[in-house]
Design a protein around this nucleic acid. Structure first.
Length: 476
DNA sequence: ATGTTC
C-alpha cells in the first residue's frame, strides 16, 4: 500500500489522521515492509470502519491484516453503546469464534518420530475433516440448545474432555448471554451432524515440535519445553456460525437503513448495539462462540483418544484456547475513564496482559497465551499478552499469517499432490481429504508468519514466547 | 470461512 498520509508513531505503528467522514484515526501495526506489502484494501476498509457510529479511539489493523468482507481481516474496532455504537456481523466474520487451542503432550520429539506415519493415519481416521464433513454426534433439538448455551462446559458434561480444561478456555469455556432462540432452525440444522469436525480452508490439526524458546520464564509457566511436542487445533463454528453470519448480515443491511446509518460500503452492514436486531445478533453470535468452544473440546477428546492408543496413560493438558473472530463486551480505560465497550476482533486475537482477572490463576502473573497459527507446513507461535497492549489496541494481537495470494491463484500455481510430497521431504506428514484444499493452502500462498509475529512483538501487542514447527498436519 | 454460487 501507499505509505503517503501515514504518520509513523513507532517502528511498527502507523496512523492515518481522521478526514472526511472518519470519526477516529486508523492505526496499523506493521513494520515498513509488511505495510508496503499490505493490500490497499486494508487501508480503505479500516478507513470505512472509522466512519461507523460510536467507534472508540481508532480503527485498528494488525500486522497480518488483509482484505475481508467489509471489515479487514486482522481488524479491531470497539464501539460504545451509549454513543450510538454498533455491532456488525461482518465485523466479527462469518466463521464465528474461529480459533486455536494448544495441548501439551510432554513427549520428546523422538517419541513421535517412532510412530510418525501411523500416528498421522490414526489422527486422519479419527478427525473428520473437509468441506461438509460430519462427525459421530447427532444432536436433538434440546441437546442443540444446551450445547449453544453451554459451550465447552456442555461438552465436558457429555464426557468430552476434563473439567480442568475449562479454566484454560476464554470465558472459562462458556460464553454468557448466548440465546439459542436467536439462532435460526436452518443454522441449527446445518450444525446437527457437524459437531467434532475440523472443516476446511485454513483449519487444521497439527502435531508440532517446540522448535525455539524466546522467553524461558514464560515458557516454563506455559509448560512449553524445547523439543517437546504439542498439538494445535485450529477451527471454528462450522456451518452454524456461517449461517448466522449470512442471515444477520442481511438483516443488518436493512437495519442500517432504518436507523439512518450511512455505510460507505454495503458490506459494513451493522445495527445499533441497543437495537432489537443488534441484541438478537449478539445472542446468536454468543451461541456460535459456544458452538466453536464445544467443537474444539470434542476434537480435543478425539485427539486424546488417538494419543492414548500410542502412549498409554498420556493426558494432554490444555495450555489455552483462543478465539479470533468475536465481539466481546469488555471494560477498557479510554481518556482516563473506564468504559464498557463492544470490541470486534476479526482475525485478531485477544491478548490480555499480566494480572488480568479473566486469566486462570496459574497464568495470571505472566499474561494470556496468544496462539498464532501459521500456514500449513510453516511455523506457528505462542506469544503472551502485554500490559501495554491495552492502550495500543484494546489488548489485541495478530492471528496468523494471512493470505498473500488468492485461492484461485494458488490453484493455478500448485498441485496438491506435489505440495504433500514436498512437505513430506521436509518431515511434515500432511493428510487431507482434498488435494485441491492442500493446493489452495500451499505454504507459499501465505505471508511469512514470522515477520507478522515479529511486528506484533516489536509493536508491543504481545511478546514472543515459543516457535512451533509441524510434524503432522491434518488438513480440511 | 462456507451444504466452496439460494
Amino acid at each position: 500500500m501507499d505509505l503517503k498520509g501515514f504518520e509513523r508513531l513507532g517502528p511498527c505503528h502507523w496512523r492515518l489522521a481522521p478526514r472526511g467522514a472518519m470519526r477516529v484515526p486508523v492505526e496499523i501495526f506493521a513494520d515498513e515492509a509488511l505495510l508496503q506489502a499490505m493490500d490497499d484494501k486494508v487501508r480503505e476498509q479500516a478507513t470505512n470502519v472509522a466512519t461507523l457510529p460510536g467507534i472508540v479511539r481508532a480503527s485498528y489493523a494488525m500486522p497480518d491484516a488483509h482484505w475481508g468482507y467489509g471489515f479487514p481481516i486482522g481488524g479491531v474496532a470497539a464501539f460504545d453503546p451509549d454513543e450510538g455504537g454498533v455491532v456488525s456481523a461482518g465485523g466479527v466474520g462469518f466463521d464465528v469464534s474461529c480459533g486455536v487451542r494448544c495441548l501439551l503432550t510432554g513427549l520428546p520429539v523422538e517419541a513421535i518420530l517412532e510412530v510418525h506415519e501411523p500416528l498421522a493415519e490414526a489422527l486422519f481416521a479419527a478427525i473428520p475433516a473437509g468441506v461438509g464433513s460430519t462427525g459421530q454426534i447427532r444432536l436433538s433439538d434440546s441437546e442443540m440448545d444446551a450445547m449453544l448455551r453451554g459451550g465447552a462446559r456442555w461438552a465436558v458434561a457429555q464426557g468430552y474432555g476434563e473439567a480442568a480444561d475449562l479454566e484454560r478456555i476464554e470465558e472459562h469455556g462458556c460464553m454468557a448471554g448466548a440465546d439459542p432462540k436467536a439462532v435460526s432452525a436452518q443454522a441449527k440444522k446445518r450444525q446437527r451432524e457437524e459437531m467434532g469436525t475440523l472443516g476446511s480452508g485454513n483449519h487444521y490439526l497439527e502435531v508440532q515440535r517446540v522448535a525455539e524458546i524466546y522467553d524461558e520464564a514464560t515458557a516454563a509457566v506455559f509448560g512449553l519445553v524445547r523439543d517437546q511436542v504439542v498439538v494445535s487445533i485450529h477451527c471454528g463454528s462450522r456451518g452454524l456460525g456461517h449461517q448466522i453470519g449470512t442471515e444477520y448480515f442481511k438483516e443488518m443491511a436493512l437495519a442500517a437503513k432504518i436507523y439512518g446509518i450511512v455505510l460507505p460500503d454495503r458490506e459494513l452492514a451493522c445495527a445499533p448495539i441497543t437495537s432489537p436486531v443488534g441484541q438478537r445478533y449478539l445472542g446468536a453470535m454468543r451461541a456460535a462462540i459456544n458452538c466453536a468452544l464445544a467443537n474444539r473440546q470434542i476434537l480435543t477428546h478425539l485427539t486424546r483418544k488417538v494419543f492414548a492408543e500410542f502412549f498409554t496413560g498420556l493426558s494432554l493438558p490444555l495450555l489455552y484456547d483462543v478465539s479470533h473472530n468475536t465481539c466481546k463486551v469488555e471494560t477498557h480505560e479510554v481518556d482516563g475513564r473506564k468504559r464498557t465497550l463492544y470490541v470486534h476482533r476479526k482475525g485478531a486475537t485477544r491478548a490480555f496482559g499480566p494480572g488480568h482477572p479473566e486469566l486462570p490463576e496459574a497464568l495470571r502473573a505472566v499474561g494470556q497465551p496468544v496462539l498464532i497459527g501459521g500456514s500449513m507446513g510453516t511455523a506457528s507461535y505462542v506469544l503472551v499478552g502485554t500490559r501495554e497492549s491495552e492502550a495500543l489496541a484494546f489488548s489485541s494481537a495478530c492471528h496468523g499469517a494471512g493470505r498473500a495470494m488468492s485461492r484461485q491463484q494458488a490453484l493455478k500455481r500448485w498441485q496438491g499432490r506435489e505440495v504433500v510430497e514436498s512437505l513430506a521431504r521436509r518431515g511434515v506428514i500432511v493428510r487431507s481429504p482434498s488435494f485441491r484444499g492442500v493446493a489452495e493452502e500451499a505454504p507459499e500462498a501465505y505471508k511469512d508468519v514470522s515477520a507478522v509475529v515479529d511486528a506484533a512483538d516489536r509493536a508491543g501487542l504481545a511478546r514472543k514466547v515459543a516457535k512451533l514447527v509441524p510434524l503432522v498436519c491434518i488438513k480440511g
